[in-house]
Design a binder for these strands. Structure first.
Length: 260
DNA sequence: ATGCCGCCTCATAGGCGA
């Protein structure tokens, strides 16, 4: 089962590039972030015509996550538990069943948190505490699971071309990295780092200042796998070439292959 | 020190992103 995550930075702007990449990559499941669309305006038909089931959790103008899956999407749940006043659309989860086992797939768009310090950074840290709570709850269940999406976290210096430039940024500040590390340390596996070590692997390049041409990127789109899920990991890759194509998002897809 | 670029919208300027 091939599962991909992709922050598309607006479904309307990626109406050609997203299906083009999917036709090439042939993922079984796609976890989308920043659809920037309300549910009723998401062009589900485009994907349904290609054999995907579609579940969205959208909002107007900002944020928004979605699941596209060739397998049925069961027990769909929207919104990260822990704060009934949080109306930002950043979390969706569903169960898919492969040939061997069921898998709980959680799609997330973690808050950016800039400027830091400040209320937006506080919201990011609060959100990460809730994410840790959800991870703990899922670990108590029997179903293997993964949590994937745009984490807006640079885990280590090797995950940025210019780590010094990010030192005080909400994506790299110690409080944010520590919160991420605390979640991983529950027993989850960073799928990319389970397969590939060393610097120079990025999933985001800013539109500004020629970042792509200079390969001035950061790795902020991640797969965290539960122990039972990590046992099924066959591969994890970043589709970096997508950044150089026509009208790209500033993020590229990251995908895993699971024997499940 | 800031903007760079590109997304969005009760748009044509301003908020947001990373």
């Amino acid at each position: 089962m091939k599962i991909a995550t992709f922050n598309i930075n607006g479904i309307k702007a990626r109406i050609d590039a997203l299906p083009a990449w999917m036709a090439d990559a042939e993922p079984d499941v796609v976890v989308l972030q920043e659809i920037k669309s309300m549910d009723e305006n998401f062009p589900s038909e485009i994907f349904e015509e290609r054999g995907y089931n579609v579940e969205t959790h959208g909002q107007k103008s900002f944020n928004g996550v979605a699941l596209l899956s060739k397998y049925p999407l069961e027990d769909v749940s929207r919104g990260l538990p822990g704060d009934p006043d949080d109306d930002q659309a950043r979390w969706i989860e569903a169960t898919v069943t492969g040939e061997k086992d069921a898998l709980r797939i959680c799609g997330l768009y973690l808050p950016n948190g800039n400027p830091a310090p400040g209320p937006k950074f506080d919201y990011k840290l609060d959100w990460m505490a809730r994410l840790e709570g959800r991870a703990r709850a899922l670990l108590d269940e029997e179903t293997p699971f993964l949590m994937t999406g745009d984490y807006n976290i640079i885990p280590q210096a090797e995950d940025a071309a210019r780590p010094d430039a990010w030192r005080d940024d909400a994506l790299f500040r110690m409080e944010a990295r520590t919160a991420f590390r605390r979640i991983v340390n529950l027993g989850l596996t960073d799928a990319f780092r389970a397969r590939t070590q060393g610097p120079g692997h990025y999933s985001f390049w800013d539109y500004q200042a020629g970042a792509w041409n200079k390969n001035d990127g950061i790795r902020i789109d991640h797969f965290l796998l539960s122990p039972a899920c990590a046992d099924r990991l066959k591969d994890c890759q970043i589709d970096r070439d997508v950044r150089g194509k026509e009208k790209p998002s500033d993020h590229v897809p990251v995908w895993i292959e699971l024997d499940i």
